[in-house]
Amino acid sequence: MRNRKVAHIFATDRFHKLKNKRMRRDIFQAIADPTRRAIITLIAIQAMTPNAIAEHFDTTRQSVSKHLRILTECELIKQEQRGREIYYQLEIDKMKEIDKWLEQFRKIWEDRFDNLDKLLATIKNKKK
């Protein structure tokens, strides 16, 4: 019985670690953080080193490195070695994946606004 409990605890702990690792790699969780969104904005303009990125934030270099690691794991950014420096740049294809997901909502809201415009035009014509 004791071995079963130990095995269960080990398996449960391992499952939660894997689950958290997978969750961390979710692109939508990555962009939910304002610091990561700001990093994406900086890197979208030009490739930057971690130190250059860290200069834009009032936080530790380790904190910025953590954000860069999460963005890299999510494949939103990629590293490029140039001499002794590592530069981070935006991964456009992953950004397109986010845009594709948002497109479905854009269409829904455009349809709703079109229906609202028609309704308002009908009401306006009835008042005349």
Results as ranks from 00 to 15, higher is better:
L71W: 01
R84F: 15
R36C: 04
I77Y: 00
I98P: 05
I98W: 03
K96Q: 10
I98S: 02
D117R: 13
W109L: 11
A11G: 03
V64R: 02
T49Y: 01
A11L: 12
V64A: 03
A44C: 05
L90Y: 02
R84V: 10
I9H: 01
P34I: 12
K94R: 12
V64P: 14
A52W: 01
A121E: 13
K126A: 14
Q104V: 13
E91V: 08
E110I: 11
M48D: 01
T49V: 02
E75Y: 09
I98D: 00
H56I: 00
T122V: 14
F105N: 08
L68D: 02
E73P: 01
K21V: 06
H56N: 07
Q62R: 12
R37S: 04
E75F: 08
K100R: 11
L102H: 01
K96P: 03
I43S: 01
R24C: 10
I45N: 03
K126I: 12
Q62G: 14
A52M: 03
N51E: 14
T12W: 12
N51T: 10
K126G: 07
L71Y: 01
Q29W: 13
F10R: 15
A121V: 11
Q104N: 11
K100D: 04
A54T: 02
T59K: 13
I53T: 00
D99H: 11
A30T: 06
D114I: 15
N51Y: 03
R84Y: 15
K100W: 04
K126L: 11
M1S: 09
D99W: 06
I9C: 01
N51R: 07
V6W: 04
D114W: 04
M95L: 13
N20G: 06
L116D: 08
L120P: 08
D93L: 10
D111P: 00
I123M: 14
M48L: 15
T59Q: 13
I86A: 05
K21P: 02
T72H: 08
E110P: 03
I43F: 02
L120K: 12
L102K: 02
I123S: 09
L120Q: 08
T122H: 15
Q89A: 10
I86C: 06
S63M: 13
F113W: 10
I92F: 15
R61A: 13
K19P: 04
R24P: 12
E91Y: 07
F28R: 08
K128G: 15
E110H: 12
K94C: 05
C74T: 09
L71S: 04
R82W: 02
K94N: 09
I92M: 14
L18P: 06
T35N: 11
F10K: 14
D117S: 12
E97T: 08
N115M: 10
E97N: 05
M48S: 02
I53A: 00
K128Q: 13
W101C: 07
I31G: 06
D114T: 12
A7Q: 05
L119Q: 11
K78E: 13
R22L: 15
R84S: 14
Q81H: 08
T41E: 13
I39T: 01
Q104W: 07
R22Q: 08
T122R: 15
N125M: 10
M1Y: 03
L120G: 05
F105G: 15
T72Q: 08
A54E: 00
Y87F: 15
H16Y: 12
I40R: 03
F28Y: 13
E91N: 15
I43T: 03
L120D: 06
A47C: 00
